[in-house]
């Protein structure tokens, strides 16, 4: 019996250690927050406090040389291009529609009539695509406006990549066509649908 306390000693120590391990597990955050920068993290190393650096002015990153003037500016030698710089497929049009609905509808509306939600909330009236001036404009013009903005509209170069901008232009053309077509373009057997009540639209 005399040696009992001796054996109990380590057992108690072990129990206490186990409890302490459980209690304090997760208290150390070293590996949760490693000494590296996450996207957008602040940094004390730079005067502007940003860890994410922008390329110095006048430099071009490898693979980012934009020497295809028509593709990147919508112009050739200062003249607005009339043709898309690449062939537009049906899938392209669908993506164009999706991108249009994300980036353009807030102001221009799903119909492209310039009555989007943000306009309804007070932004200056956005242009309707269904006016003669814009029906006559070349595709390069729309690309240029998306890229650099126009009037109250800011440029969307940071938000929409180059290819998507062209796809939006392609969809915009389809939209113009859809709102400026004679009834005779609609197949005779489906004309009745034009007079039918519109189905409830699903909001995305």
């Amino acid at each position: 019996m005399t040696n009992k306390p001796a054996t109990r000693g380590p057992a108690v120590t072990f129990a206490l250690l186990a409890a302490a391990t459980l209690l304090f597990a997760g208290c150390r955050q070293d590996m949760h927050d490693a000494p590296r920068y996450e996207a957008y993290e602040a940094s004390t190393s730079f005067a502007d406090g940003r860890a994410s650096r922008t390329a110095p002015v006048g430099t071009v990153a490898r693979g980012w040389l934009r020497d295809d003037e028509a593709l990147y500016t919508g112009k050739v030698a200062g003249q607005t291009v009339e043709q898309f710089p690449f062939a537009i497929t049906h899938a392209d049009l669908q993506r164009g529609q999706q991108r249009f609905n994300i980036y353009c509808t807030p102001c221009h509306g799903q119909l492209g009539d310039g009555n989007g939600m943000v306009v309804q909330r007070g932004l200056r009236q956005a242009a309707s695509y269904h006016q003669d001036r814009l029906r006559q404009e070349k595709v390069g013009y729309f690309y240029d406006v998306i890229t650099n903005g126009f009037g109250a509209m800011q440029g969307y170069a940071e938000q929409v990549p180059v290819r998507d901008r062209w796809l939006i232009v392609a969809y915009l053309r389809a939209l113009q066509l859809s709102q400026h077509a004679p009834v005779s373009d609609v197949p005779a057997d489906r004309r009745a649908e034009l007079d039918a009540a519109p189905a409830a639209t699903e909001r995305h």
Binding site: P106, Q159, H204
Partner: peptide, 8 residues
């Protein structure tokens, strides 16, 4: 409220 897509 305004219905702006997340990706905007």
């Amino acid at each position: 409220g305004i219905g702006i897509d997340c990706r905007y």
